[in-house]
C-alpha cells in the first residue's frame, strides 16, 4: 500500500503494508537508522521519535497511523547536533555503547519542550520508559538538568 509520510520535514512515499510498524519503515524503507530496534513491544524506548511533537515509540505506531502527522527522528532533531539536549549529552559524555541514546535524547527533548525545568522526579517519570543497559541513568539525569539550564 502506498503511503505518504512526513519525516524531518521531508515527504516520503513508501510502499508497505499499512500495519508495518513506523520503526521499520523509518529504518529499512526510508533508511533513517538512528531510530533503534530494542524490543518491538514498546518496553525499552530505543525507538522513541516525536509525532506531532509528542514522544512516541515507533515500534508501537503503525505506518498508516503516522500518515498526515509530523514525524521527527534523531536525525531531524537538529541539523548539527546543536539541540541543547545533544549539547548537554556531549558535555557530560553521556553515551557508553550509545545504542539507546537516540531514544533517550528524543524522550528528553520532548520532556523539556513541555517542562522546561523538570525536577528529578519529573525526569524519572518521563524517562522511565527508556532502558539503558550500560546504566547511564545518572549521567542522563544530570544532562537533562544541564540542557534545561541552556534553555532547551
Amino acid at each position: 500500500m502506498k503511503l505518504s509520510l512526513t519525516v524531518n520535514g521531508a515527504t516520503h512515499e513508501v510502499d508497505v503494508e499499512p500495519e508495518t510498524p513506523l520503526l521499520w519503515v523509518l529504518r529499512d524503507t526510508i533508511g533513517l537508522t538512528g531510530t533503534k530496534y530494542g524490543c518491538g513491544i514498546a518496553q525499552c524506548g530505543a525507538c522513541t521519535v516525536h509525532i506531532d511533537g509528542q514522544p512516541a515509540k515507533a515500534c508501537n505506531v503503525n505506518a498508516a497511523a503516522a500518515v498526515g502527522r509530523k514525524i521527527t527522528t534523531i536525525e531531524g532533531l537538529s541539523p548539527d547536533s546543536s539541540h541543547p539536549v545533544q549539547k548537554a549529552w556531549i558535555d557530560l559524555t553521556v553515551p557508553q555503547c550509545g545504542y539507546c541514546q537516540s531514544g533517550q535524547i528524543m524522550a528528553a527533548a520532548a520532556l523539556l519542550a513541555r517542562t522546561p525545568s523538570p525536577t528529578d522526579s519529573q525526569i524519572d517519570e518521563a524517562m522511565a520508559g527508556n532502558l539503558c543497559r550500560c546504566g547511564t541513568y545518572i549521567q542522563i539525569r544530570e544532562a537533562i538538568h544541564a540542557a534545561a539550564k541552556m534553555g532547551a
Partner: peptide, 15 residues
C-alpha cells in the same frame, strides 16, 4: 565516540 552517538550516525551491525 560521543559525537556520533548523539545524532544517530554511529553505525552498529543492525544499521
Amino acid at each position: 565516540d560521543v559525537a556520533v552517538k548523539v545524532n544517530g550516525s554511529a553505525v552498529y551491525p543492525i544499521d
